[in-house]
Design a protein around this nucleic acid. Structure first.
Length: 289
DNA sequence: AACCGCAACAACCGCAAAGGG
DNA sequence: TCCCTTTGCGGTTGTTGCGGT
């Protein structure tokens, strides 16, 4: 792990929200060079961020395969069940939710699901917010969705990939077509799939206002390309309200799109992913070039 | 219209594990 | 084997937007 070749002088790293320019630099760099030593990325990409921040930004926001939009009922159930079994092992929970990041799952839990679970179990039988003892840990995650498959709490990224390819497992998306429609990050509109590259990326609609650039930019997750979800962040009012009327939106979370809908209605075709970029992994962190 | 409180999300911080020299 | 660095994870905080008063 040690990467002494990545030694660099101490510098004042920028903090706060990422600007579109920073995102662009990071994305361009990783597309061009792939993932390597994160600590070297800022210097090589011309960013005044630390490697940790770059990694986080990539994982939580820029990497392909991220799903945008509210959690489906199935995803919600997965989170609730896995949280009950695993505790706050967000990275492990996120492995069972393709396109979701541990940070996203964690935020969703803390902001919404935890309260709901608490309400449903006022007696406090829920272990919401705490980790189970080792003896409480499951030997299998099969109970979550009923699809079983022997995926365990320590499931690897490889297992995740296998699930995505239609293998059932504990994934909520057992339908292959649905998995196939698993979406690309919103920086990769359909046109970019055909002709990938920074030039095909629109910066005008879905970047957060940064601390550096103070334009009135829609919050990062807010508007999808094509305005299919314009005006509401995937959290925010829409998510909050919808979850109080959740049952009717299991298969069609909102906006009339399927569970896998994301950015601009642009579906990311997992089956072709390798052809596009030489093998983006759909797992949490891995990016194979 | 202004203020306040809340909710949601992005990002930071600190720690532990892993791995190379 | 120890030390140092990087990576990954979970907790926490900061920022922003929205709704209510």
């Amino acid at each position: 792990m040690g990467c002494r070749s990545c030694d660099k002088p101490k510098m004042n790293y920028r903090k706060g929200l990422w600007s579109p320019e920073e995102d662009q630099r990071l994305r361009d760099y990783i597309i061009k060079h792939g993932l390597g030593c994160w600590s070297a990325v800022p210097a090589k990409a011309g960013l005044q961020r630390n490697g940790k921040s770059c990694r986080l930004r990539w994982i939580n926001y820029l990497r392909p395969g991220l799903k945008r939009g509210m959690f489906s009922q199935e995803e919600e159930d997965v989170v609730i069940n896995l949280q009950a079994k695993l505790g706050n092992k967000w990275s492990q929970i996120a492995m069972h939710l393709p396109g979701r990041t541990d940070n996203e799952v964690k935020n969703y839990w803390n902001s919404y699901l935890k309260k709901r679970v608490m309400q449903q179990q006022p007696g406090g039988s829920s272990n919401a917010g705490k980790s189970p003892s080792p003896s409480e840990l499951p030997t299998s995650m099969s109970a979550t969705t009923g699809t079983g498959g022997g995926s365990t709490a320590t499931s690897t990224h490889g297992e995740h990939d296998a699930n995505l390819s239609g293998g059932g497992g504990a994934m909520p998306f057992v339908d292959q077509q649905e998995a196939k429609n698993f979406v690309f990050a919103d920086w990769m509109p359909p046109s970019a799939v055909a002709a990938p590259g920074p030039e095909s990326y629109s910066m005008s609609t879905h970047w957060p206002a940064s601390t550096a650039s103070s334009g009135n930019v829609t919050p990062s997750h807010g508007a999808f390309v094509g305005d299919q979800m314009s005006g509401s962040s995937y959290g925010g009012a829409l998510q909050h309200q919808d979850h109080h009327h959740h049952n009717q939106s299991v298969a069609v979370p909102h906006g009339g799109a399927g569970t896998g809908m994301v950015a601009g209605g642009g579906y990311f075709d997992l089956l072709n992913m390798g052809d596009i970029y030489g093998g983006f992994s759909t797992t949490n962190d891995d990016l194979l070039f």
